[in-house]
Design a protein around this nucleic acid. Structure first.
Lengths: 354, 354
DNA sequence: CTGTTAGCGCTTTCAC
DNA sequence: GTGAAAGCGCTAACAG
């Protein structure tokens, strides 16, 4: 028996992928018989089933997933598009997405827009058209700046879309966001309560949704506590130019701030280093709080107080919304927006409360 | 004309994806005519071409990529499997991969094994079977520990495979690695030349290929310069237990080292922090060099001297090898292994040479 | 210039 | 218990 198999298919010289058809031919049965046998259908005699399965195993048969998807009109894969891979925060989100997806039998594919509008569109085009059953995306900075969201609109006609972290009100879909406003408020309030009087913020341009929200939180706290903030204390970093030089300015101010809230850990760590270089004592003379509790905050010296964002939870929530949307028949239940809490994590770049 | 279109296809209520067939039906022509018109075939009259294209555009027609791939037996996508997303190094490799891939018309999909054998196998199964034209993988730690590579062997029957960074001699395929040995040597030599006499290494268990090579480089230098290294100076971190506690040991030694080489930036930064906590002066009393020039090294204080690994270049090289393999007819030219140089980047955790 | 047909790999009626 | 045929969406060889 074995010899028979080996003889007939001497083209084991790879490339020639084994298919249902080939198995059928070798065994002298029809493809549908093979298909049914492989899925253990009761229509097929036990004998034939065994024979087919043995043969398939021997040749390490794997169904062609493309064909399967084309036929089932389902891929069981989720496309994820994030702006940048190096962000520790996005890593944690992805781990949450993967976790939730696997639990419900889905797989995950990740693409990177590199903050570019072009690449975002390209990625969507590549993944759309049958490849994935749904999209999870965090919008690229350039797209936010351009404020052009047609690619998302088109997409929504085809498969469900859930936006996370970087969202936009113009796009009508399910969303998961961090409580950026609340985080900005908490951080600022903490600085105030630990005695800082002259508060500065290092943030992004306003088109970056999360930066804007964090700034709003900052300003609200400032206002609630009746603190004046001169305009030189508000730095909006343009990442197209030298970041360090822009941050330097606020540190070098003759009347410099004693508390700095930065909307990400890179800005925070950079500012802190610059301050240290000038011999400023941290946190006594200047306190720092960043957003995003990543490795940078952990390993900087002194370690940075931050707002921890619970990326894993965000990922899980986002994938849950998406899969629910994919699997629900009546697709028109209202879109929802989930807000994930942030926690203030006090380390050594800030003074202690009493 | 326009009205005609709109009337006939009133099911604009989404879900009903537009296909060639539907366009053909609406326009009263055959699918092949539509197909050819869309690809601007000269077989079709200009008039018809225009009409079809206009209609397709209006309905935002996008070819189904699954069907395309099934037909062409090509997907133009590369599957990448990496152990962990949070490693800055892998991020840079991926950027290189993407760059090279896009240049040659390929797209990239990334999956994460989370250092787990199981997930690695799962990812491969999901991407194999037609979804991708080739694989780029960096082996998970667990797989290295188990030393079970059957999934790669099976894979190679189907599509080309290129291993990068974490490789294994048992797997016969193209490979791209960092000069881990050379890096270990360079770092150690630098420590010696800047006056360190008591050298310690913080590394991984030996089954992690890159850790082993770096250790070998270290030992070679030690040997070349006739330095004795007591066994307590060699720490092999088991990541299943508390990392800090294990690293603590070498710092707390009564006769402690004055130069430490760590095989990654996390170990290096952790060790340095621990030393600082004990009031040890860096680099005067203890010098540090890590591997991987990521954010941690950059933002630690003092900033860490490291071996920069040129991940981008590695990614570009890997994708080049892979695509060459994919596109070459005669698939049996010999497998090659490329070695990417590392650069010693001196910052402030080490003394200066003269 | 346009249409018919076959086929990529698979599943699923529906006959036999 | 098994097989023929249709169809998922697309293209290309071949007729007309």
């Amino acid at each position: 028996m074995k010899i028979f198999y080996i003889c007939k298919s001497q083209q084991k010289n790879m490339g020639a992928k084994i298919t249902l058809k080939k198995i059928a031919k070798e065994l002298g049965v029809s493809t549908s018989t093979v298909s049914k046998a492989l899925s253990d259908s009761h229509e097929i005699s036990v004998e034939t089933r065994e024979k087919v399965k043995a043969f398939a195993k021997m040749y390490n048969y794997k169904p062609n997933s493309l064909a399967l998807r084309l036929r089932n009109q389902r891929s069981m894969v989720i496309g994820v598009i994030i702006p940048e891979i190096v962000h520790h925060f996005f890593s944690t989100v992805i781990s949450g997405i993967e976790h939730g997806a696997n639990e419900r039998g889905y797989n995950v594919m990740v693409c990177f827009s590199d903050e570019s509008y072009q690449k975002e569109v390209l990625n969507i085009e590549m993944l759309a058209g049958g490849s994935v059953d749904g999209f999870l995306v965090s919008i690229a900075k350039e797209t936010q700046e351009l404020s052009d969201f047609r690619h998302f609109e088109d997409l929504k006609e085809e498969v469900p879309l859930v936006l996370f972290d970087r969202v936009h009100p113009k796009i009508n879909c399910d969303k998961v966001v961090v409580d950026d406003f609340g985080g900005g408020y908490k951080a600022t309030e903490y600085l105030i309560k630990t005695g800082c009087k002259k508060l500065a913020i290092i943030t992004t341009p306003d088109f970056v949704s999360v930066g804007l929200e964090r700034k709003k939180g900052f300003l609200k706290a400032i206002n609630d506590y009746n603190i004046a903030v001169p305009s030189e204390y508000i730095i909006q970093v343009n990442e197209k130019n030298d970041i360090t030089a822009q941050i330097q300015k606020v540190i070098n101010l003759p009347d410099r701030p004693d508390g700095i809230f930065a909307v990400n850990e890179i800005y925070a760590a950079t500012a802190m280093k610059l301050a240290q270089d000038k011999g400023i004592k941290i946190p006594e003379e200047m306190s720092f709080i960043g957003f995003t509790d990543g490795y940078i905050s952990q390993f900087s010296n002194p370690s940075l107080s931050t707002l921890a964002q619970h990326g894993h939870e965000m990922g899980e929530k986002a994938i849950e919304l998406l899969i629910n949307r994919i699997e629900s028949k009546d697709s028109d239940f209202p879109f929802q927006t989930k807000v994930i809490d942030v926690d203030l994590k006090i380390r050594n770049s800030t003074k202690k409360t009493f």
